[in-house]
Design a binder for these strands. Structure first.
Length: 864
RNA sequence: GCCGAAGUGGUGGAAUGGUAGACACGCAGGUCUCAAAAACCUGUGGGACCAAAAUCCCGUGACGGUUCGAGUCCGUCCUUCGGCACCA
């Protein structure tokens, strides 16, 4: 007997779509529920079993809530900008727009065939100009608050492709496209000041319901550490070098200073001396090395600059070095070398014969660095103090002298927002050389001045808005900042979106500029301020941009006045439950929380966190328990499952495959098992239908009512595997008690099956209506979907069990089981009496004993 | 190295501190069949005893601890997986 034939499924799909049964309405008296799954990148590979896991499980939850009378928002869309389409265009010449549209058509067809209950009226696509208009708008707002800035930073340069790579395109130190080792290169890039939000991104985690390890990963990524910034003056000069350290109490152990090579070049004091050529040669050598080999270098190299720095605590002269193991983007790009108490410094000092001076008691510093705590030694001002006390004391002293202060270092860097690719949102900025020459920029315009004067007074979170304006004001007063921004203006908001132009070549230019730079007619524009000749920014946004706010657009996808209507946002936000891959819980989650907080600060969204609950489904491995990959030939195509067994089997197997958040491996035997179950349900349902028995036995009623509660709870707690198991368990009982089952029980069973196996449930429900139609005079022509029915309410009058087994332990060991009537569950005297009469108990009964009685659980007789 | 998660039958896995192994797979035997497949029925953690029923002992990575009672809580260790990492 074949089940789930696709024609049958298609019939229901069409009816469901036609009647828009999954449509959610904005503003409603019903309770709202916003359930979100990460939207996919529409690749040529189509949706895989991993997508299916997330979508089908959350779909079951969404369906259940809908049946429970809630107004459910369960939307879907496409994160369609990205490299694969561009790489394909490079090879084939076919415009990414075309391939993307094709892939979306295919993937949408898949999603529909899996019976996913998305509201297609709200479908969005990040490459749609009507969508990216608002992505650009958000960027402009960030720029106008000083949160987007252009700066020269080290980028990953692939010498073979001759392009810049984003960090995520560098795999293991190598170019993702060609495998060449990448180099570091300085280039001007747009950055977003996410570090300004670091503290809130950590502290607000307390307000949300993410799994602990997800929170930990976010906190670790931000990596906020307390320490000190200390200034070391360069002898016989006005310059100083600032270092960051987490151990200021080791300052008496400093025997050299080390600065990063990238940093060394820009230090004014290096440029004035004779040793500079030698130093620069070394710097160039290190810079030429690939990032990977520099980090892998076991031996730490360095070059003495010939300068001396003065230790602020005792005026001691210490040498200044340039070292390859000091990174520009960590701390200040300069360190104080304390060989006795830092492993890396120890190795370096050992190699270059620098003194090793112990200043914390403990360990044996003649062999290795001692990184633990202890009493300070050889340290005049803090002699004998324990580490914590010593650090506080020395910090206080340094602060008093103006030579140091308490500070924090972050692992998180500002977000490099420029990409030199075609298939992304154009960064909506214009550069005017004339204004630049006069030191003008948007920050010198009247608009900027007014922004500061009338700081958004009408927004609900006034405090944050004022804070934001205040930082902006400080930035505008900062000459270095305004000089850096000279000539830059955002595209006026009424001119958004800045649409992507057509290009002939998708290849970046030889200089590492985006392919857009070749489209002269597009690049050339007018300065929004002076009207003179100006040029557009040719960099595009990274992949993360469109996905950082898409959940907002779902609330109001067709709005052309704002990114989404405030009332609608106020109704739907926050997202109640957001599920997606583990690979996105650091960057994507952090980026979108950052954008959301910014939008909150400027009054564009009503909540300070976007997602209330975030979960992540585990990866599905191949049947060989290895990661699925084409080259290993172990990729499972979900459409094969649908074609062979039907969508319900795919759905229920994806739920049954294992604990939702755990990594699991695919098993075709498991698929067969689920399919067998569904077939059995169909046969049993047919049997019950033809019996026309209106009501089933008491026991059947009691069991089905217990099942309602269990399924409800399991779906809510993401225990999809045990939900399926519970359905199977009931079916096993049903098989042995066919005559107990009535139409009343059947109706409940298919209603609670509906979220998991919507096709079989619909089909059986319609059969049930046909069967009962004559009796109840139902209108047969009207389509009444099972998915619009209300979730059955468990009958409270049902007794838990007719008979309850009481487990009898003696001294904690299982000795007997006693059956008692359900209503006696709590009757201690009754149970004790019966238990003490039992032969097995009498034999082992201790002379003196006490009884521990836990109703409904156990009775334990303990010797005393 | 740092942070995090997890270790249960032949396999995937169940189990608010209260009958360990639900449910499923696999396997074995059986019914049906000329035969096979499908479907259905029975059994299935290890061991002792046994014709059988019954009964008993052991058992959730290792060792301790808390408790009347521990897969579950606490401590130490081992292993595996995930994230970060020349992070100052």
């Amino acid at each position: 007997m074949s089940i789930d034939n696709s024609k049958e499924n298609k019939k229901w799909e069409d009816l469901w779509l036609k009647h828009e049964i999954y449509k959610s309405t904005d503003k409603d008296k019903r309770k709202k529920r916003y359930i979100l799954v990460e939207f996919p990148y529409p690749s040529g590979e189509r949706l895989h079993v991993g997508h299916a896991r997330s979508y089908t499980c959350l779909d079951a939850v969404a369906r259940k809530h809908r049946m429970q009378g809630e107004n459910v928002l369960f939307p879907f869309g496409w994160d369609a900008f990205g490299l694969p389409a561009e790489n394909y265009a490079l090879k084939s010449g076919i415009h990414p727009r075309v391939t993307t549209a094709m892939n979306i058509t295919n993937s949408k067809e898949q999603a529909i065939s899996w019976g996913l209950s998305f509201d297609w009226n709200r479908e969005i696509n990040t490459t749609d100009p009507e969508y990216y208009k608002w992505t650009q708008w958000i960027f402009v707002q960030m720029f106008k608050h000083g949160l987007a800035y252009k700066s020269e930073i080290a980028v990953n340069w692939c010498p073979s492709c001759k392009i810049n790579l984003a960090n995520e395109e560098v795999i293991d130190g190598k170019c993702e496209r060609c495998g060449t080792e990448t180099e570091r290169r300085l280039q001007k890039q747009w950055l977003l000041r996410i570090t300004q939000y670091a503290d809130r991104l950590i502290s607000d985690l307390e307000k949300v319901d993410y799994r602990e390890d997800i929170k930990h990963q976010q906190i670790n990524w931000i990596g906020r550490k307390a320490g000190a910034l200390i200034k070391f003056q360069i002898a016989e000069s006005d310059h100083d070098v600032e270092v960051f350290t987490t151990r200021p109490e080791t300052i008496y152990g400093v025997t050299y200073l080390a600065v990063a090579p990238e940093y060394a070049e820009s230090l004014p004091w290096v440029q004035n001396r004779s040793k500079k050529e030698q130093v620069f040669e070394y710097v160039r050598k290190v810079m030429r090395m690939s990032e990977r080999s520099r980090k892998q270098e076991k031996e730490k190299t360095g070059m003495e600059t010939g300068f001396k720095a003065l230790n602020p605590v005792n005026g001691e002269k210490i040498p200044v070095w340039v070292c390859d193991y000091v990174m520009t983007d960590v701390g200040t790009g300069a360190i104080m070398g304390v060989p006795a108490h830092d492993e890396r410094d120890f190795k370096f000092a050992h190699k270059h014969n620098l003194p090793i001076r112990q200043v914390v008691a403990g360990g044996d510093v003649s062999h290795e660095a001692y990184e633990g705590e202890g009493k300070a030694m050889n340290s005049e001002l803090i002699q004998g103090l324990e580490t914590g006390e010593a650090a506080a004391r020395i910090l206080g002293w340094l602060e008093e002298k103006g030579a140091g202060k308490l500070s924090y270092s972050l692992h998180l860097r500002d977000w490099v927002f420029s990409r030199q690719h075609y298939w992304g949102e154009p960064i909506p900025m214009v550069f005017c050389p004339k204004c630049a020459g006069q030191g003008k920029s948007w920050f010198t315009t009247r608009e900027a001045q007014e922004k500061i004067r009338n700081a958004n007074i009408e927004v609900p979170n006034k405090h944050k808005a004022l804070e934001l304006t205040k930082t902006l004001e400080q930035r505008i007063l900062n000459l270095e900042f305004t000089a850096g921004m000279a000539g830059w203006y955002p595209v006026p908001e009424e001119d958004l979106p800045v649409k992507l132009p057509e290009v002939e070549k998708y290849q970046p230019t030889q200089t590492g500029e985006s392919p857009l730079a070749n489209v002269i007619s597009w690049v050339e524009t007018k300065c929004p301020e002076c009207g003179g000749k100006a040029s557009r920014e040719t960099d595009t946004m990274p992949n993360w941009a469109g996905s950082s706010w898409y959940y907002l657009r779902y609330c109001d996808p067709h709005n052309d006045k704002s990114l989404a209507d405030k009332d609608k946002l106020a109704y739907w936000l926050p997202v109640d439950w957001y599920n997606g891959g583990m690979e996105h819980v650091t960057l994507h989650l952090l980026y979108s929380r950052f954008w959301h907080k910014f939008l909150y600060d400027i009054g564009a969204v009503p909540t300070d966190e976007p997602y209330h609950k975030r979960t992540s489904h585990g990866v599905i491995l191949g049947p060989d328990r290895r990661k699925m990959s084409k080259s290993k030939g172990n990729v499972i195509n979900p459409d094969d499952v649908v074609n062979k067994y039907g969508a319900d089997t795919l759905r229920m197997y994806e739920m049954f495959i294992g604990p939702f958040e755990q990594m699991v491996s695919w098993s075709w035997e498991g698929v067969e098992g689920v399919n067998r179950y569904l077939k059995r349900v169909r046969v049993l349902a047919e049997d019950t239908l033809s019996s026309r028995r209106k009501t089933g036995s008491n026991q059947a009623w009691a069991r089905i009512n217990r099942l309602i509660v269990r399924i409800d709870k399991d779906l809510e707690e993401m225990k999809f595997n045990t939900a399926v198991a519970a359905m199977m368990e009931y079916t096993n009982w049903w098989m042995d008690h066919k005559d107990d089952m009535g139409l009343d029980g059947l109706e409940i069973y298919i209603k609670i099956l509906a979220p998991m196996a919507p096709f079989l449930a619909e089909e059986t429900y319609q059969r049930l209506r046909e069967t009962t139609a004559n009796q109840d005079n139902l209108n047969k022509n009207e389509f009444t979907s099972v998915h619009l029915q209300s979730w059955p309410k468990a009958d409270a009058s049902v007794t838990p069990e007719e008979n309850v087994t009481v487990v009898v332990q003696i001294n904690g060991k299982l000795r007997d089981r006693v059956e008692i009537p359900g209503e006696k569950t709590n009757d201690r005297n009754y149970i004790e009496k019966i238990v003490l009469e039992r032969e097995k108990v009498k034999v082992k009964l201790p002379e003196m004993y006490k009884i521990i009685f836990i109703p409904g659980k156990i009775i334990n007789i303990v010797g005393v």
